[in-house]
Design a protein around this nucleic acid. Structure first.
Lengths: 222, 222
DNA sequence: CCTACCGATCGGTAGG
DNA sequence: CCTACCGATCGGTAGG
């Protein structure tokens, strides 16, 4: 459909750094390290369980010193989601871009995704699975809306990659990309949750098997 | 393997009621209604987000009046899980018991499960999906342990039903029941989460399609 | 089942 | 980026 638009997934706002004295630069570096820690904490406790006091303690700074970087807890939550999205894109979305469109790229993407779960790129497992579950039944608000958009966007991204593999002649054009994307996403989320809950690495073999079976069934008899 | 042991899933402790004056009976009724409300709140906010103050307000009683029924927040959390398990068993596990073992029973089970999601039997969607995600990356403790055991037990229950369908000759004996159970569980959990997040009922058609495809592929060519 | 409390922590602010 | 605070709420207790 659209070209290789990982841009929609990676809305990176480059930190401003236009003052010569380096104070803003230092401030931005502090901000980034705050958000990295915040994303790790939130992957464990969620974005509500992420409290300013605990985050400040973890960083060895005062609550108000930390708070000065953000106007409110909601701003902190939204900035944390942005930082987490960058980490997700770097680890899961970007690497497979170097491969040509097709089944091979889809498989690489799935492998990177499972490796990201297994490697606990966030301290508490996938940040996005945690916050999706946290906000899925809460009333609307800016944070919930962003979480929902990201969830939707990732499945749409998977569906686009399936469609490209169909156009490349690797996958049967008659299958429904959205259906396959839903099933792939379900398997990945389940693998992350079971791994976090049971600490059993075998679940990744189960997930890989499920993904392979799904792609084999969708493959063109070439 | 074992017989129709839904007992392991439904460890119902019948309320004691041995005093003639009805005070205990009333107390137990109050306790049950507290736990029903607690399970609904926890399905939205999680078992940590379930605070004694909010629960008391919702029930129109004082914090300490409510607290008298439980010795600690942890006791309240564990009792809430018990109450939620009963509701889950009544709605998802029990109905299909009336069918003979086999593929038909598995399909009935899956249908009841999706109907339970769609019908929002808990106010915030499936209680167990919420608390699994909440506790999956937390450090061990009694609550996390029970949540993990329940998750494990449900997948094992699905696997047993698959095995019975194999023994009945409905499903190919060469397929791995644990693998199929993992995939069925993944699809169900994803359907619940997407429904809660996007409020789109179409996800249940996707889930039903995924389940049907999985069972068709596992069916014996009869 | 209640009122009345406890110390700790929450998000946030004043003022520097 | 700090100290020093605010009112609200947390889990829990004393005493009835």
């Amino acid at each position: 459909m659209t070209p290789d638009d990982l841009e929609t997934l990676a809305q990176v706002q480059p930190p401003q750094d236009d003052e010569a004295d380096g104070r803003k630069r230092r401030g931005n570096r502090t901000r980034e390290s705050i958000l990295d820690t915040a994303a790790d904490l939130a992957s464990i406790e969620g974005l509500e369980g992420l409290t300013i006091g605990r985050l400040a303690t973890e960083l060895g700074m005062s609550k108000s010193g930390l708070f000065a970087h953000f106007g409110s807890k909601e701003e902190l939550q939204l900035a944390t989601i942005d930082a987490a999205r960058r980490r997700f894109v770097d680890n899961v979305v970007r690497p497979s871009r170097e491969l040509p469109r097709g089944r091979e790229r889809v498989e690489r993407l799935m492998n990177d995704w499972l490796a990201y779960y297994r490697g606990e790129i966030f301290r508490g497992g996938c940040f996005f699975n945690t916050v999706k579950a946290e906000f899925d039944s809460r009333s609307t608000g800016p944070v919930r809306d962003v979480v929902m958009d990201d969830a939707r966007e990732f499945i749409a991204f998977l569906a686009r990659e399936v469609r490209k593999a169909q156009e490349a002649g690797d996958l049967d054009p008659s299958i429904d990309p959205d259906q396959l994307a839903f099933e792939l996403d379900a398997v990945g989320a389940a693998a992350n949750q079971h791994f976090q809950l049971m600490h059993d690495e075998k679940v990744f073999e189960r997930a890989a098997t499920a993904i392979r079976t799904r792609l084999d069934a969708a493959a063109t008899a070439a």
